[in-house]
Amino acid sequence: MTDRSNRRVEGSPATHGAGSPQIGRLGAQSAQLAGHPVIVMVQPDTHSYVGRDGHRLIGDSTEFAVREHGARPIAPPDFSFPGDPAPQWQAHLTYATDELLIHFPGGSVMYDGTMPTTANWRAAAASSRGIVMITGPIAAVSAIEPVIIGGRASWIRLPLICE
């Protein structure tokens, strides 16, 4: 069973790499991207500023915090997501309840909520070398593809423990 003693952020979110209360409104969506099982972080209150030329001027706070801890930009059409899971990150998924818990390096909670999965996603995740998490200014499930194709998303491979 997952240790639940470190599930909540104590004190200001700014001390944990996130200077915005938006981090408490994250959602997680399981998906497949180019054959890879992924976790897409969805946030209804995302903030990003994009210049007239389409380039991002300021990314959202969650993506900033994740990049500060090792995430890399997604560069379409390359969806190979090379490498091993990032050190010190932790992700735990309980299939029976769909509970997903993700910790930043150092133990601070990044996400504590649910993420339903399919049997195909679970099988692909079990045979992968960690799970890819995608962040960016993704305000709704319908925004996932445009944000990724537009090069405004980041990814990081996490170690995933499933029970």
Rank of each mutant, 00 (worst) to 15 (best):
H69Y: 05
Y49G: 04
G136N: 13
I144E: 09
I58C: 13
R72L: 14
T97K: 12
E63D: 10
D60H: 01
R67M: 15
H69E: 08
R122K: 05
E63I: 02
A86I: 11
P76E: 09
V50K: 14
N120C: 07
G54S: 06
T62W: 10
F81M: 13
F64D: 02
R122L: 12
V141R: 14
S142C: 05
R122H: 08
P146Y: 05
A96L: 13
D84T: 13
A65F: 12
W121I: 02
P76H: 02
T94W: 06
T114V: 02
P146A: 05
G130K: 12
G136R: 04
Y49K: 13
F81I: 12
D98P: 01
S61C: 00
V147S: 03
S48G: 10
A96I: 06
A125T: 10
W89D: 15
W121A: 03
R129P: 05
D84I: 03
D84K: 01
R129F: 03
T118C: 09
I74Q: 08
G51S: 14
T114C: 09
T94C: 08
I58K: 04
S128I: 03
V132W: 00
S48K: 11
G107E: 11
S80M: 09
F104K: 11
V141S: 07
P137E: 08
P105F: 08
P137Q: 14
A140Y: 05
P116F: 08
L100Q: 06
S127M: 14
Y49T: 15
N120Q: 05
H103A: 14
T62K: 01
G83S: 04
F79W: 01
W121Y: 04
A126N: 12
H69P: 04
T118Y: 02
A140E: 07
D112C: 04
L101H: 12
A71Q: 02
I134K: 05
G70D: 12
G130W: 04
I134V: 11
A96S: 08
E145N: 15
H103S: 12
V109Y: 00
P87F: 07
I58Q: 00
G83W: 00
I134C: 11
D78Q: 00
D98T: 14
E63C: 08
S80K: 15
G54V: 00
I102G: 10
T135Y: 13
G113I: 07
S127G: 10
A140N: 10
E68W: 12
A65H: 06
P73T: 08
R72D: 10
R67L: 15
I102H: 01
G136M: 02
P76W: 04
T117F: 06
P146H: 11
F104M: 15
Q88P: 01
H55A: 13
T117G: 06
D112L: 03
S48V: 10
T114L: 10
T117I: 07
P105Y: 11
S80A: 11
V141T: 06
G51N: 14
I149N: 11
D112P: 03
